[in-house]
């Protein structure tokens, strides 16, 4: 099991409030790691520390190391470069409403680089195919990204993240706003994604974590309580808090 992300002594604050306390974890490569825990446990802060988005919030502070393939993203790396390597998909689908479906997929490349039109269009098609959206939208590529259904929008956002060819993809409850059929498609996609990239996914739905992840991390009050293979966590968690959370006794 190759380590993709090595998080060492990670602490995070919002002003005086400590949101993450001494988190140490090794996220394995090309696997799906689920992050679970009750609201306000630091899940979101944790993944936002991995693409350096936490620091954008007023009053935010971070200490510790996050090694991506051995290189500290809080070292000399430019935060913009970090975010290109570590993609993110959000709870609410957020395609750019001023761009067409096709342009949304390659928005990052288009805004950043000097790609030829032909290259962009090929990349757009390829990524729409890899998220299984191609068949559904191939006749509507010119329409606004905001005109798609919620589930389609979310897959469009995943395609947009994938188009950057990221090392890691972070997902913050990507299906919590979607209907069961769209959720199933997202889950299917997440399982497929791990062939190409490392996925870290926050979910409030413990069944979903059990279905799609290889590893599970349980956070409580800013601490990483337990990190283990998903099968172990859901069959025989070692910590009483984990046990109580996943059996629905609290949270």
């Amino acid at each position: 099991m190759q380590t993709k992300l090595d998080v060492q002594d990670l602490n995070a604050w919002f002003y005086q409030k400590q949101a993450l306390k001494n988190v140490n974890v090794k996220i394995p490569e090309k696997m799906v790691t689920a992050v679970i825990g009750p609201s306000g446990c630091g899940k979101s802060t944790f993944i936002r520390c991995i693409n350096r988005m936490h620091e954008l919030v007023p009053g935010a502070k971070v200490s510790g190391k996050v090694l991506l393939d051995g290189a500290d993203i809080y070292g000399t790396m430019d935060p913009m470069d970090v975010r290109r390597k570590v993609g993110m998909v959000f709870q609410k689908p957020n395609p750019f409403p001023n761009m067409s479906v096709a342009d949304n997929v390659v928005a990052g490349l288009k805004l950043l680089g000097t790609y030829k039109k032909q290259e962009l269009s090929e990349l757009s098609d390829a990524n729409l195919k890899s998220v299984g959206l191609w068949e559904e939208v191939k006749d509507d590529l010119k329409k606004s990204g905001a005109s798609l259904s919620g589930g389609q929008q979310q897959r469009l956002c995943i395609a947009r993240a994938l188009a950057m060819n990221p090392e890691v993809i972070l997902m913050d409850e990507p299906s919590s706003a979607l209907d069961p059929a769209s959720t199933a498609k997202i889950e299917e996609l997440v399982k497929k994604l791990k062939n190409e990239t490392t996925v870290i996914i926050i979910t409030h739905n413990v069944q979903q974590a059990a279905r799609i992840s290889d590893m599970t991390a349980f956070f409580y009050l800013g601490e990483l309580i337990e990190f283990d293979q998903t099968a172990n966590i859901f069959e025989s968690p070692k910590n009483q808090l984990t046990e109580r959370y996943i059996t629905g006794r609290f949270g």
């Binding site: 413990v206 069944q207 059990a210 859901f234 069959e235 025989s236 968690p237 984990t242 046990e243 996943i246 059996t247």
Partner: peptide, 9 residues
């Protein structure tokens, strides 16, 4: 109920 942990066991 899709039980987990001790409930599943």
């Amino acid at each position: 109920y899709q039980p987990f942990a001790s409930d599943l066991r």
